[in-house]
Design a binder for these strands. Structure first.
Length: 273
DNA sequence: CGTGATTGACCGAATGC
DNA sequence: GCATTCGGTCAATCACG
């Protein structure tokens, strides 16, 4: 997919005394509607692509598992160090579902139990942190260096609700240290936490594939790693999620908020006079 | 002072002999 | 069956706001 470059700024710097103000605003509104429609179409395409990838991934996993069954036990143990990755690269951020370094001997467990999911998160090369902001609040309770990977594995519990059984493990990929392999276990028994998505208290603000918008040429990147995304894999949920992401992106854009404030205050002043 | 991170110690399962 | 290894968890301690 070609790079997304959207103009989210509102061109509202119009002369208040101009008799064409309403027309200009109307044109701006039309432009934004067209932009909105275009975005919706792009998101639909993105969702379709994701579904296709997911299907291919499942097929590949099945194939590999059958082949692996024929291998010797020792060979299988060695294969635990190998990682197969399939992802969607979107500018600087990579969000992907994953087949991970775990051996296929547990594959059936994974497939039969949707409570375990794995997510790969691309991070900055200079970023050594093991924190992944996924919309939930986590408390770290341990860290270990595992045998097959020199980088430490961090253990987290969901700290939002004391009764929440969800745990996650985060470890850097052996092949690509810029990729964090996150393993989620269990299901949240509470709602999603909006606070952390927006940089709230909890984890450090790192490794977050959050939407970014530049001032000159805004680039909307989508975070597909938010918890629950890969588990549900239902189009409606995906679209709802993407819309949320877009809303967050827009409200984070200083240009957008400034323009919005200007527009509102202008309208109020117009109404008064 | 409360909350969360760090890290060494401990435990249990898996594995090898 | 026993010893060893390893992954996961606990809990004491520390740092920070």
């Amino acid at each position: 997919m070609e790079p997304t470059c959207l103009d989210t700024s509102l061109n509202l710097n119009v002369d208040p005394s101009s008799v064409h103000t309403d027309m200009v605003l109307e044109e701006e509104l039309q432009r934004l509607r067209r932009e909105n429609k275009r975005l919706t179409e792009m998101l639909t395409d993105l969702c379709d692509s994701y579904m296709v990838l997911q299907k291919q991934l499942t097929q590949l996993k099945n194939t590999n598992f059958e082949q692996d069954q024929l291998e010797s036990r020792k060979r299988k143990a060695e294969s635990e160090c190998c990682t197969n990755k399939f992802g969607v690269v979107n500018n600087n951020n990579v969000e992907c579902s994953s087949i991970t370094e775990d051996s296929f001997k547990r594959y059936k467990d994974f497939s039969s139990s949707p409570k375990v999911s794995k997510v790969l998160v691309k991070t900055e090369a200079s970023n050594n942190s093991l924190y992944v902001m996924d919309g939930y609040q986590w408390r770290k309770y341990g860290q270990k260096v595992t045998r097959d990977n020199p980088s430490p594995r961090a253990y987290f519990r969901c700290s939002f609700a004391p009764s929440c059984p969800v745990k996650k493990k985060v470890q850097r990929s052996l092949e690509d240290p810029t990729i964090l392999v996150t393993t989620y276990e269990g299901e949240h028994n509470h709602g999603h936490q909006r606070g952390e998505i927006e940089g709230g208290k909890g984890s450090s603000p790192v490794s977050s594939p959050t939407p970014t918008i530049g001032s000159a040429c805004p680039t909307v990147t989508l975070d597909l790693v938010k918890s629950g995304f890969f588990e549900t894999a239902q189009k409606s949920s995906v679209q709802q999620f993407l819309v949320q992401q877009m809303a967050t992106s827009l409200t984070r854009d200083p240009n957008f908020t400034t323009a919005l404030a200007t527009a509102i205050s202008g309208k109020i002043l117009q109404a008064k006079w």
